[in-house]
């Protein structure tokens, strides 16, 4: 896909229009416009606290679960407003999966970690096959195939994170939200996850938050740079600085701030 081609809304998995999120009375992010093209990897980058996780949580309505969080603006998934009455957050979350910043496997067996999502979503096929396929997909099968009955918590941090990725792809979502999935991983596991993302891209749309500039430039097709500025109340408010194809963000961004951030000369 070239950015010269005019895209229609059917090419987008998710579109955010003027989205603002506040926690209680403090505005955390303001006026975010973001169109996520299908079967692409979109990276969200920016300094800590600028609201990347907050924006990510909007897309599967995870902010609904945070007391006091309020989302304004319009977000569509496959063209449909996710805040409309027709959209059920439970079904939305099945289609928009999430991998969290900190690995959070269930305190159950590795097998059960994968099977749970499939079972509640009424998976009809062979469970053993699904478990194997998902674990292979997350590049962790060889490490756990002999101990599927053991607790997910008995794995190392990096293995746990890949288990969480396996769990997310087991229910075959359309979009996968990844919040710094590699922050707890060694370089080799990180590379595996990145390779995995390239494979997953064929079937899924991926939005990934990362602090690793190389990772963003290596893996993503589009990059959104967020920043935060001080507000009059003394807090910080996040906003979207620039969103474009990854090469452009990293080589010829239109904003000075972006240039400084991606080249490591920030703040």
């Amino acid at each position: 896909m070239q950015d010269t081609i005019v895209m229609t809304s059917t090419d987008f998995a998710i579109q955010a229009e003027k989205v603002s999120v506040s926690y209680g009375s403090t505005l955390a992010v303001k006026d975010v416009f973001l169109d996520i093209p299908k079967n692409n990897i979109v990276a969200l980058i920016g300094p800590s606290g600028c609201g990347k996780s907050t924006v990510l949580r909007c897309f599967n309505r995870m902010n609904d679960l945070i007391p006091g969080a309020r989302v304004e603006g319009r977000i569509t998934f496959n063209g449909q407003d996710i805040h409309s009455k027709q959209v059920d957050p439970v079904q939305l979350r099945r289609q928009v999966g999430m991998v969290f910043q900190r690995p959070n496997p269930f305190p159950k067996s590795i097998y059960e970690n994968i099977a749970f999502g499939a079972r509640i979503n009424g998976y009809q096929g062979n469970m053993d096959e699904l478990v194997e396929r998902s674990l292979r997909g997350a590049a962790i099968w060889d490490e756990v195939k002999d101990k599927l009955k053991e607790s997910g918590l008995s794995l190392s941090g990096g293995q746990q994170q890949r288990l969480c990725i396996a769990r997310a792809i087991a229910i075959e979502p359309e979009v996968i939200l990844m919040d710094e999935p590699c922050s707890a991983l060694d370089p080799i596991s990180t590379l595996r996850v990145e390779e995995l993302m390239q494979e997953l891209k064929q079937k899924y749309t991926i939005i990934i938050v990362t602090h690793n500039m190389q990772q963003a430039s290596r893996t993503s097709d589009y990059t959104a740079f967020f920043n935060a500025r001080a507000t009059e109340q003394g807090g910080k408010m996040g906003y979207l600085v620039e969103y474009n194809r990854t090469e452009i963000i990293f080589q010829q961004p239109s904003q000075q701030d972006t240039q400084e951030y991606v080249s490591g000369r920030f703040g």
């Binding site: 599967n60 995870m62 679960l65 439970v90 079904q91 939305l92 979350r93 099945r94 289609q95 999966g97 999430m98 969290f100 900190r102 959070n104 496997p105 269930f106 305190p107 749970f116 999502g117 509640i120 979503n121 969480c164 769990r167 997310a168 229910i171």
Partner: peptide, 21 residues
């Protein structure tokens, strides 16, 4: 921990499924 609840919700579980399981 809330992270456990979130893990369940993120897979499309209902509140009761998260609590019960």
């Amino acid at each position: 921990p809330d992270s456990l609840r979130w893990a369940g919700y993120a897979l499309g579980a209902t509140k009761w499924e998260v609590i019960w399981n």
